[in-house]
Design a binder for these strands. Structure first.
Lengths: 133, 133
DNA sequence: TACACTATATGTCTCATACATATAAATGTC
DNA sequence: GACATTTATATGTATGAGACATATAGTGTA
């Protein structure tokens, strides 16, 4: 789902970057809400095209978030085209999103820490080229 | 496995930070090799105690890395105490580790990017407190 | 004997994701 | 009208990564 950047380290499917869809969905919802198909586009735009989440996965995440009270949804009334379900973030959802911010920063830190450790263990004399991001 | 920092976002077990054990193991191996139990301690030290990997998981990772030619191992001869298997990284392992560095930097960037997006969507006026890590 | 520490290993569960596919309604094209 | 494409939601299934529990031995010690 990463688009750009080789699949790298022996991954066929599955996890690899760890939990990006949920926070991305929450970010899109916090900005403006809307229906799933549109949220997906919004995520692409928010991340400059770097994160293109799986549609099926996104819908599953949205329904689970609703089950747990972090978003609400309803079938959009009127309008042409296929039925669409509009999502809105709740106050609890905002709190969850706030937790995610801290969590993502921690992940960011840990990724950098490990990258530095690996790099120095390999004898790369401090190639922090991409450091920070 | 994170120790320090709440479990956060609805996780019981499983993925959540995404692939840390393998690169951590490679870092420890690149520094000095050794047996599994010791590598685990080494990982703890490399990360200032922030990453304390599951022992069972570490052994599984080591054996898979060996299957794929990224490390070699042999039962240590002599010595007292329970048998131990000594691991060494191969040239291919070093190349894999090098790929991991790039991959981790990308993850670091993506985590920061998402954290910023979420934070700004929530109306936090640029609280990049923990930014960079 | 009982306990703790070292050391390796397997079982089982959850979480997060990728890829494939099913379903419909509308829209465009021939 | 027939057909493909786009919008939109949804399920099936497989893989990967990790958490927690537990099994197994050897070794030292109270």
């Amino acid at each position: 789902m990463h688009r750009g950047g080789k699949p790298c380290c022996r991954r066929g499917g599955g996890s690899g970057g760890g939990a990006l869809v949920e926070p991305a969905a929450l970010a899109a919802l916090a900005r403006q809400g809307g229906h799933g198909y549109d949220l997906r586009r919004e995520i692409r735009e928010l991340t400059g095209g770097e994160l293109d989440v799986d549609a099926g996965g996104l819908y599953r995440v949205l329904r689970r978030l609703e089950e747990d009270g972090f978003v609400t949804s309803a079938w959009a009334e009127g309008g042409s085209g296929p039925q669409r379900r509009d999502y809105e973030i709740t106050e609890e959802g905002r709190e969850l999103a706030q937790d995610w911010v801290a969590h993502l920063r921690e992940r960011q830190r840990m990724s950098g820490l490990l990258a530095d450790a690996l790099s120095s263990a390999l004898g790369n004399d401090d190639d922090r080229t991409n450091k920070e991001g």
